[in-house]
């Protein structure tokens, strides 16, 4: 996108295992400074393999990966958060984070003030002070991911690559991690690449999407462009999910049209509830009219002269109309 600011470039990169067909071929990608890129694709398409090849942990089948950086050592150019489990669960979080300084330490492993400052900064950014003395066995998966990200930040590399950092996390933790990564990209100017299949979150946080295509290729673009041009629908082959509305598709099996009059979240959730229950939402005036009223923080639904204080009661009433 911004060739002047690109940190990582690939030229005719071909990725996969020597014994099989390449998973991706002829890739010419670029990852810019200060950009959060989400690398998406169905499971098993080779996201981890490409990520490891870019990180230099796996040899490429062909082509080159170049990282624009003043330093020589690859470990000072690029840090990773992988899906590998850490078996030494008696390790403390602060020991784990300190590993990020290894590229800068000699055999005595003595931390200089610079090293300590880098650690403090990473801990501040990930907000995990309260975890430092805990052992890895005592913290949650979400907290472990934050610690792994802190460890990667401590490495002070211009590039950060993460493989499924939000897998196995609940919604709240997923949002926290993705927001943190976006914040990091924009505030520290790092180029951040996240392999993920969390469609909804990626669409709302990524600056750019790399989408694994059908012919060993990658489509790139900003999330909204890829939604509107149907690239996502083509790759993911959604079954019952409408990406453009961001909703699960419901079949209107009741054959009853309803018009909802009202504004804001209240009207939107009313429509959601009715659609889920098989009603057709009609914008023109249908036989059934529901008015959503908001007074003193209290929502009331008016239908056929009666008012209801919950959607549950309203829908129960509507169902009685069904022959």
């Amino acid at each position: 996108m911004h060739p002047d600011k690109s940190l990582l470039k690939t030229h005719n990169l071909s990725v996969g295992y020597a014994t099989g067909q390449p998973l991706f071929s002829a890739l010419n990608l670029s990852l810019a400074k200060g950009e959060l890129v989400c690398f998406m694709g169905p499971n098993g398409v080779g996201k981890s393999t490409l990520l490891k090849t870019l990180a230099g942990l796996q040899p490429a089948l062909g082509g080159t990966v170049t990282i624009d950086s003043a330093v020589e050592q690859p470990e000072k150019k690029l840090s990773v958060v992988l899906t590998d489990r850490i078996t030494a669960t008696n390790m403390t979080v602060s020991e784990l984070i300190a590993y990020g300084r290894y590229p800068y330490l000699d055999w005595s492993l003595k931390l200089t003030p610079d090293d300590k400052a880098a650690i403090t900064d990473a801990v501040n950014r990930t907000r995990i002070h309260y975890l430092l003395d805990k052992q890895l066995s005592q913290i949650s998966d979400g907290q472990l991911q934050l610690a792994m990200i802190a460890r990667a930040l401590v490495q002070q590399t211009p590039l950060l690559l993460l493989d499924e950092p939000t897998a196995h996390l609940d919604l709240n933790n997923r949002v926290e991690i993705m927001n943190l990564l976006r914040e990091l990209a924009h505030e520290t100017g790092k180029g951040i690449l996240v392999a993920t299949h969390e469609l909804d979150l990626a669409l709302q946080t990524a600056d750019l999407i790399w989408l694994a295509g059908r012919n060993n290729n990658l489509l790139t673009g900003i999330p909204e462009d890829l939604v509107l041009n149907g690239a996502f629908d083509d790759i993911f082959q959604f079954k019952g999910f409408d990406l453009k509305t961001g909703k699960v598709f419901h079949k209107p099996w009741r054959n009853m049209a309803v018009t909802v009059r009202g504004n804001g979240h209240e009207a939107r959730w009313t429509k959601n509830a009715l659609e889920r229950n098989g009603f057709i939402i009609s914008d023109s005036r249908a036989d059934i009219l529901i008015e959503v009223m908001l007074a003193n923080q209290q929502v009331t639904w008016v239908f056929g002269g009666n008012s209801f204080n919950s959607l549950d009661k309203l829908i129960w009433q509507l169902r009685q109309l069904n022959p």
Binding site: K52, A55, G56, L57, Q73, P74, E75, K76, L78, S79, V80, L82, D84, I86, T87, A88, M91, Y99, G100, Y102, P103, Q155
Partner: peptide, 12 residues
């Protein structure tokens, strides 16, 4: 202790 991949990513 972090595994081969992480060790390599740290320049070991």
């Amino acid at each position: 202790l972090l595994g081969d991949q992480y060790a390599r990513s740290l320049g070991i």
